[in-house]
């Protein structure tokens, strides 16, 4: 079971990682989305219209024109401002926990829920067998009563479901 959970977690994480758009041609806007403006607005550069954001845009443009790639440009800004300039945690080291934990939690929850539901289904089946055994012993009166109960229940359901 542990192995299944681990495999499921890795698969889910890999799927999540694949969500990252693969840019054939990096544009200024692609990089703007990955950087936070440093004017204190708490917005990504792409969304901010302040002078600081414009300066960052100019630097990105200049560096792209100079042949720099996205990775290099992001590294430059991290060197300038620290890791907080990136709009999302990097996918390495301790930061990986930020990416993995939500999917791992959902996957673990799904496995746990499946197991609980299975137990409840087994409990339901056991109870049904118990009731049937008791019904066979009780004879025809019980059968009559059960039919009446079924009729009442059907009426109640009808009241609940049929518009």
């Amino acid at each position: 079971m542990k192995r299944s959970i681990a495999v499921l977690t890795v698969v889910v994480f890999l799927l999540a990682v694949r969500v990252v758009p693969a840019y054939a041609d990096t544009t200024v806007r692609d990089i703007e989305k990955e950087l936070m403006c440093q004017c204190g607005c708490t917005m990504i550069v792409e969304a901010c219209t302040c002078g600081t954001a414009d300066q960052i845009r100019d630097v990105i443009k200049t560096k792209l024109e100079g042949g720099a790639d996205k990775k290099g440009i992001l590294a430059y800004f991290v060197g300038q401002y620290g890791e907080r300039v990136l709009s999302a945690p990097t996918k390495k080291g301790f930061n990986l926990t930020a990416w993995i934990l939500p999917f791992a939690a959902v996957a673990a929850g799904a496995v746990g829920l499946y197991l609980i539901l299975r137990i409840w289904v087994l409990q339901g089946a056991a109870r049904k067998v118990e009731l049937e055994a008791a019904g066979a012993e009780a004879g025809e009166d019980t059968e009559l009563y059960r039919q009446r109960l079924a009729t009442e229940f059907a009426k109640y359901q009808e009241m609940d479901e049929v518009p």
């Binding site: 936070m36 990504i44 907080r84 300039v85």
Partner: peptide, 14 residues
């Protein structure tokens, strides 16, 4: 001991 930001790209992907 490092300040980081968790912004839209993280939430969109997760």
């Amino acid at each position: 001991g490092v300040k980081i930001t968790v912004g839209p790209p993280f939430f969109n992907q997760v």
